[in-house]
Each structure stands twice: as structure tokens, then as C-alpha cells.
């Protein structure tokens, strides 16, 4: 394994988390991660040492997802099945509450348009700065903040009814 491969292995948990914000179906999300890793290795010459590997790979995943979701929309509009058991480490009422909350949030995320969901995921899930997130999405920072604002407003409105 070379340095890049090792760095990618270290990044896999975060790539999987980001993929989950894009696809509810765990196997589909992992397929997306695999595609991203394969594309990254094919285009490894484009990554410059010293720049952020996570941003670069999030951008690859974003593009893979957009390609994939275009194809998917043509095929079917069915939502991916919900995944249970994501919080199996907790007990009883606490686990149930956590699972319900997670499901409500993931449902609401799933209803956002792709561009808003990507903005929310990069900033609020992955913790990127506005500048970094805008670079991943290849848009001006003003576009990023406007998508982020609309996405957040939609999520707040969506979750207002079901909040615990």
C-alpha cells in the first residue's frame, strides 16, 4: 500500500458517513464509496500532496452521485428502503428515541433537493468550512451559503412537527 491508499483507507469511515447522507440504502451508499475510491485511484495523479484528501474525495463522490442519481431518476422514483438498526448500541427507550430522531432527520434530508442536501451534509455533517464546501461543490461561496440556508430552513420546517 502506498501513502495515498493508506490515507484513503483511513478516510473510509468518513466517506461512508457522507455517502449515507446521499443514499438511505446502506448497500447503495457503500457502492457509492467504492465507486469513489476506484475513481480516486484512477485519477490519483490529480491529487496534490498537501491538499486536503477529504475535500478531493468528497468532490469525486458528489460527481459520482450526480451521475448516478441522473440515471436513477430515469429508471425509478422509488425511495430507498429505510434502514433499521443503525443505533443498536443503545438500550430501550433511549435507543428508540434516538432511532426515531435519526429516521425523522434522515427522512427530512431525503426530501431536500440534491444541491441543498450536499451543502448541509458537507457543512453540518462533515464539518467543512464554507470555503471548503464551496470548493467541493465547485460553486461560488455565495451559492453555497444560499443553498445551505434554504436547506436548513426546509429541515427546520419539516422537523418542527415531529420534534421530540
Amino acid at each position: 500500500m502506498d501513502r495515498l491508499e493508506r490515507a484513503i483507507v483511513d478516510l473510509l469511515p468518513r466517506l461512508r458517513r457522507f455517502a449515507r447522507t446521499l443514499s438511505r440504502d446502506m448497500a447503495d451508499a457503500d457502492d457509492l464509496v467504492q465507486q469513489t475510491v476506484e475513481r480516486a485511484l484512477v485519477h490519483r495523479g490529480q491529487w496534490r500532496l498537501g491538499t486536503r484528501l477529504d475535500s478531493w474525495m468528497f468532490r469525486i463522490m458528489k460527481n459520482a452521485w450526480i451521475d448516478e442519481s441522473r440515471a436513477r431518476r430515469r429508471r425509478t422514483a422509488v425511495l430507498a428502503p429505510e434502514e433499521d438498526g443503525a443505533n443498536t448500541g443503545l438500550d430501550g427507550a433511549q435507543a428508540l428515541e434516538a432511532r426515531l430522531e435519526a429516521r425523522a432527520v434522515a427522512d427530512a434530508m431525503g426530501r431536500l433537493p440534491d444541491d441543498q442536501r450536499l451543502a448541509v451534509a458537507l457543512v453540518l455533517v462533515e464539518g467543512l468550512s464554507y470555503r471548503e464546501a464551496a470548493e467541493v461543490l465547485e460553486v461560488p461561496q455565495g451559492t453555497l451559503t444560499s443553498r445551505l440556508g434554504r436547506g436548513r430552513a426546509a429541515l427546520l420546517a419539516d422537523l418542527a412537527g415531529g420534534a421530540p
Partner: peptide, 11 residues
Amino acid sequence: QIGRTYAPALQ
């Protein structure tokens, strides 16, 4: 809330 929702994926 959003952070909590996706955090388990890291574990």
C-alpha cells in the same frame, strides 16, 4: 440533530 443522525456510520 443532523450530526447525531449520521455519527453512527463512523463507528
